[in-house]
Computed example of a mutant assay.
Amino acid sequence: MKLSAQTKVFALLLSVGLFAGCSSTGETVDGGAYGSDVEPIDQEGGSTVYGGDDEGGVSSSALTEEERMAAQQRAEQDALRDITTFYFDFDTAEIKPEARDVLVAHAQFLSANPGQQVRLVGHADERGTKEYNLALGERRANAVQRFLIVNGASRGQMETVSYGEEKPAVMGSTESAWAQNRRVELVFE
């Protein structure tokens, strides 16, 4: 493959131009090491999301430690509120200790949002008579309602309903199925 002299000269000039364009002199321009349109990173000031002038975005340096902690606590409370089903032991309406923190988060949410309504739906497993299971489901829903009220929710925000054994979460006559059917569900409206 033969290249013409004109093509060789053009390629040589292009190479020299690229080489010259990539070299730097090491001088600083406009007081910055990188040029006027690029600023060095502020290692202690935080960062800005969206926008570059701290006016159109959220700056992490603008948050105090208390605000960061409050934001983290709100995120944790929101995560707890994703849990809306609470389980009970056999033949009891006593709230389990592991459910208390989650119910407190729900009570705080209801307290902060007085227009929010919630239905507390009580259930029982299939053991016992229909009447007994309806009453047990109601006792369970009422226990959750009392707990929410004590922790800041308003009685007017809540409605209790019992389905007893009529709407099982899991079909079956095993201990595992019964355990999943002994519950109160929070249904936010």
Rank of each mutant, 00 (worst) to 15 (best):
S36R: 08
L63E: 02
Q117A: 13
A93H: 09
L14C: 02
Q180D: 07
N133F: 06
G122V: 05
R100H: 07
E76L: 15
E131T: 12
G122C: 07
L3F: 10
Q77G: 00
V49L: 12
Q6Y: 02
K2L: 10
V16M: 05
A5C: 05
F90G: 06
A75T: 14
Y87N: 11
N113K: 09
L120F: 02
G52M: 04
H106N: 02
M171I: 15
V29K: 14
A112V: 04
K2P: 01
L14M: 09
A33W: 10
V58F: 00
K130I: 14
T160L: 06
Q117S: 11
E55V: 09
G152I: 09
A179M: 14
N151S: 09
Q108W: 06
G172D: 00
A112T: 06
E39N: 11
G32P: 00
M1C: 08
E65Y: 01
Q180R: 10
E27V: 14
T28K: 14
M69D: 10
G57P: 04
A177R: 03
A143L: 07
R119I: 15
S15E: 02
R139A: 00
E138Y: 09
G115M: 15
S162T: 03
G156Q: 10
E166M: 09
A124R: 08
P40L: 14
D82W: 01
N142V: 15
F88R: 03
M158I: 09
Y132K: 09
E185D: 08
G45L: 15
C22A: 12
S36W: 01
K8F: 11
A70Y: 03
S47N: 11
D54G: 00
K2V: 14
S47A: 14
S61C: 06
R81H: 01
F88H: 01
T7W: 04
D89E: 11
N133A: 13
G156A: 07
A70M: 15
Q77L: 13
A33Y: 07
T129M: 05
D101R: 07
A75Q: 11
R139L: 11
S24G: 13
N113F: 06
Q72N: 05
A20C: 03
D54A: 08
P168I: 08
A79W: 03
F90A: 14
T174E: 08
P40S: 13
K2F: 11
I95M: 12
A179R: 12
V9N: 00
E131L: 14
M69H: 03
V49K: 13
N113V: 15
R81C: 04
A5W: 07
A20D: 05
L110N: 06
L120N: 07
L63V: 01
A93F: 02
G115P: 00
H123C: 07
S173H: 01
S15Y: 06
D78T: 08
V58R: 08
R182N: 02
T84Q: 11
V170H: 09
S15T: 09
R119P: 03
T174A: 15
S111T: 12
